[in-house]
């Protein structure tokens, strides 16, 4: 089921938490929602799950509008809210049973479904404990289990790996990737590496507006534009090398990083690469090229560039 968001606006008082946002998430796609605190990620997710009613705009899941068929839509969504609110005084098994019943799973299948979730989320040893007695990581697993129990076609995860240890994070990411192949998934996170590792597509949102949308490579290319290289050439005179580098056509700017080590920073002209030319030059002049490192723009830099100001 596709998620179609059109001109979504949500105001809290006079503040526009989400401002005229439109996007489509297709089946089999994992969309990562990035943004600084208060950017409108949670508000957008809450609108999709019908928890908040938008001021303007429409949201459709499959062919169902959130205004006309809220109850039908809720059946197709698995939702893990921010901070993972659960009934602390309820045992894990009872809670999962309650959820399964609410989703209208057949009585005869409830037991096997619960067992399946317990295995999938690694809750075997904790299933009879009260939720309040579990550590945060295990509570997060219960949150995931309740979101997945009815095998929903759409999954909305608000910071799914918060509070988990590194091993659990890897497991959950794997799980999300696996689920994401057949389902429509939106997840938000403030961990950029996580979004990069799990999502097919990244959307950066700032002050209620979408500021970037694409795969991580696309975002990189867009932000980077010019190739930047760090090179070190041994043997040979610094000034001589400097002059020789400036003569290469594709190079726009040559800059010293460290004169004593003969290392330079090189910026190529737009859409051009100077790696080959530098190598050839070194061969011709019999210099030894000991380092040639492309500067990769990190997602962090893109994120900061887009969301600062």
């Amino acid at each position: 089921m596709d998620i179609i968001v059109e001109n979504l606006t949500k105001k809290f008082g006079t503040q526009r938490a989400v401002d005229n946002v439109s996007f489509i998430v297709k089946t089999g796609e994992v969309l990562g929602f990035l943004g600084p605190n208060g950017a409108g990620k949670t508000t957008t997710m809450r609108a999709i799950t019908t928890f908040l009613t938008p001021n303007e705009g429409t949201i459709k899941i499959g062919n169902l509008s959130i205004y006309d068929h809220p109850d039908e839509i809720k059946k197709h969504i698995g939702y893990l809210p921010e901070n993972n609110p659960l009934y602390q005084d309820m045992p894990v098994i009872d809670y999962l049973k309650f959820t399964a019943e609410l989703y209208g799973i057949e009585k005869s299948k409830i037991k096997s479904k619960i067992l399946e979730m317990v295995n999938l989320c690694g809750l075997e040893g904790e299933k009879h404990k009260k939720i309040g007695e579990l550590s945060k990581g295990y509570q997060q697993r219960v949150g995931l289990a309740q979101a997945l129990i009815h095998d929903p076609e759409v999954l909305i995860f608000d910071e799914p790996t918060a509070g988990l240890d590194p091993n659990q994070i890897v497991e959950i990411r794997k799980l999300i990737k696996k689920i994401g192949k057949e389902k429509t998934v939106i997840l938000s996170s403030h961990i950029l590496a996580e979004v990069e590792a799990t999502c097919d597509r990244i959307m950066i949102i700032n002050k209620g507006k979408i500021v970037a949308d694409g795969t991580s490579e696309e975002l990189r290319k867009h932000a980077q534009g010019k190739e930047i290289l760090k090179i070190t050439i041994e043997d040979g005179d610094v000034n001589e090398i400097f002059k020789a580098l400036q003569k290469i056509d594709s190079i726009e700017v040559v800059d010293f990083i460290d004169k004593n080590l003969n290392s330079f920073e090189i910026q190529s002209k737009p859409e051009m690469s100077s790696k080959k030319a530098i190598f050839k030059m070194c061969v011709e002049k019999a210099w030894t090229l000991t380092e040639l490192t492309p500067f990769e723009t990190k997602l962090e830099d893109i994120f900061r560039e887009l969301t600062m100001n």
């Binding site: 809210p81 609110p85 609410l102």
Partner: peptide, 14 residues
């Protein structure tokens, strides 16, 4: 207070 209302109303109940 605990926010569980969010999970409850996003389940298929009106």
């Amino acid at each position: 207070r605990s926010g569980t209302i969010e999970l409850l109303v996003t389940k298929p109940v009106n």
